[in-house]
Design a protein around this nucleic acid. Structure first.
Length: 496
RNA sequence: GGUGACGUGGCCGAGUGGCUAGGCUCAGCUCUGCAAAAGCUGCUACAGCGGUUCGAAUCCGCUCGUCACCUCCA
């Protein structure tokens, strides 16, 4: 069914292009991962849900995908925690946070958040700190090729020199002259020959706590370099898809391309550069300084002033998928409410469908209905193939839902629908919702609360000496490996 | 300042020359012990002005407005 050729918007060409893998049936995909210095937020959810769907889509279409998503754990971490008055903490090494401890903590929480969102883990998740050697190698190539220079233990990429034979700015549409006329004065610019130059390797100042030896002294790699080096290691000089947020397009991805061209790879690194758009909160950019920053934990718990109730991971996932990935997406309590209801409606339809699986009616073959169903299902796949238009695909799913709800009444399928047609819907609906969009039924119930309900019925039956009912409840719970215990103080249960 | 994007009904959000997505909300109806769920019906929009066209939300121009990137950022 998933036979429509995928078209994907390539930032490099600014056009939708038909996706043609470099080495079919294999597909290499690299997505810029998080910098693990704080909790994951709504923006992370959008980016990784977007590329999760692309990953799932490609796998579903029969490709063998190697998905690489890094963890950035070097460079950004400075030891600014001991500005305060805690002098004792400085004495005991164990009282201070090790940089790797910070990294591990937020890596763990990131993984937990991603799992809750039903985002498949990447096939390789390399850490920047584990690939210092590869990064140094790449710097040496760029130096050898004459497109970088060393100053005081730091190595900078020579943008003007590179721009002579290449076009710096080709991805983001920048023109080097425009960039030059608008540069700001920043620290450490004195070492650079041009303000556009960027660091490949930075000499570590004494307060810098993450440092590695290199041919140029102790330091740490520039933050654009890890992605070029690690993607090359695992996917090759040129691979299929590079993804990330729109905010990474410049300068991060621009620099990646420059590095790959300037190294011995001599490629644009990836054939298709794909960018998801940003999110806003009540129409405003999300930012710590704006006071509207919201982490995934806060959304899931409802512990944030913007939301009036907890919103589940699947509600968030559904909400994200209801917009096209290249549009900005606005978060508000009202919009999330709508998303929540829509998600519930979809899941109710899925449950209805599952229950009806064997309860079809025997009918003569239908003509028009089969054709209609075929059309509805096809439109969902076609939408996904058209630059991953999940919003349109979901609207198609809801058309199927309305059809289902109208035709099927529990527990019998409408006699107008044949078994073949029913199975066709069931199979494709499942594939689309569960496998490609990656939604799942969240069992909403709190098991303890449900057990309390059962216990209340048990107590009531006991009080009424309805022992048939009492035995039935005990037997049912026993199947769940639970046993009820009567005591003078009341009724309780335990694991059996 | 430079570059780019956008402005769709009460809200969110697809669509990009004719066939007027979808979800949520609201009103009514069917169903119903109550309540839901579900179905049906209604509210039928494309910032403003002008142009191209048989025909424009969709193309072009202008005006107004919003946003993003240019600095760490998904």
């Amino acid at each position: 069914m998933n036979t429509f050729p995928l078209k994907i918007y390539n930032t490099l060409s600014r056009k939708k292009e038909t996706f043609e893998p470099l080495h079919a049936p294999f597909v290499g995909m690299y997505v810029c991962g998080p910098t693990v210095y704080s909790d994951a937020h709504l923006g992370h959810a959008r980016a990784y849900v977007t590329f999760d769907v692309l990953y799932r889509y490609l796998k579903n279409a029969g490709y063998q995908v190697r998905y690489v998503r890094n963890i950035t754990d070097v460079g950004h971490l400075v030891n600014d925690a001991d500005e305060g008055e805690d002098k004792i903490g400085k004495i005991a090494k164990l009282d201070k946070l090790e940089p790797m401890e910070v990294v591990q903590r937020f890596t763990n929480s990131f993984h937990a958040d991603m799992a809750r969102l039903n985002i498949l883990p990447p096939d390789i998740e390399p850490r920047a700190s584990g690939h210092i050697i590869e990064q140094i190698e790449m710097i040496e190539e760029i130096l050898k090729n004459g497109l970088a220079y060393e100053v005081n233990g730091s190595v900078y990429f020579d943008v003007p020199a590179y721009n002579k034979d290449h076009k710096y700015g080709k991805l983001s549409g920048r023109v080097i002259e425009d960039l030059l006329s608008n540069t700001r004065d920043l620290d450490g610019q004195q070492e650079k020959r041009s303000p556009l130059d960027f660091a490949l390797w930075k000499n570590a100042s004494p307060e810098h706590i993450m440092r590695w030896p290199s041919p140029w002294g102790e330091g740490f790699p520039g933050w654009h370099l890890e992605c070029s080096a690690m993607s090359r290691k695992y996917l090759g000089n040129l691979y299929d898809i590079h993804g990330g947020g729109l905010d990474l397009m410049f300068p991060h991805h621009e620099c990646e391309i420059a590095q790959s061209q300037a190294s011995d790879s001599h490629t644009d690194e990836a054939k298709y550069w794909v960018h998801n758009n940003m999110i806003t909160i009540n129409g405003q950019k999300m930012g710590k300084s704006l006071g509207n920053f919201i982490t995934l934990g806060e959304l899931f718990s409802g512990d944030h002033k913007m939301v009036e109730m907890p919103y589940s991971p699947m509600t968030l996932r559904f909400f994200i998928l209801q917009a096209h990935y290249r549009s900005t997406l606005d978060f508000s309590n009202e919009a999330l409410q709508a998303g929540r209801k829509g998600y519930i409606k979809l899941m109710n339809a899925l449950r209805l469908l599952e229950k009806l699986e064997t309860a079809y009616a025997e009918v003569a073959e239908e003509g028009e209905i089969a054709a209609d169903v075929q059309k509805m299902v096809e439109s969902c796949y076609a939408s996904l193939a058209d630059d991953m238009n999940t919003a349109k695909a979901i609207s198609g799913l809801f058309n199927i839902v309305t059809f289902l709800n109208g035709k099927f009444r529990e527990p019998v399928v409408s006699a107008e629908v044949s078994k073949a047609t029913f199975n066709f819907i069931l199979q494709n609906f499942r594939t689309l919702v569960l496998d490609v969009l990656g939604l799942k039924d969240e069992k909403p119930a709190d098991a303890d609360a449900l057990l309390e309900v059962v216990l209340d019925f048990y107590k009531k039956a006991k009080a009424e000496k309805d022992y048939a009912q009492v035995d039935a409840i005990r037997a049912a719970l026993k199947k769940q490996n639970l046993v009820l215990k009567d005591s003078k103080t009341g009724v309780d249960w335990s694991y059996e």
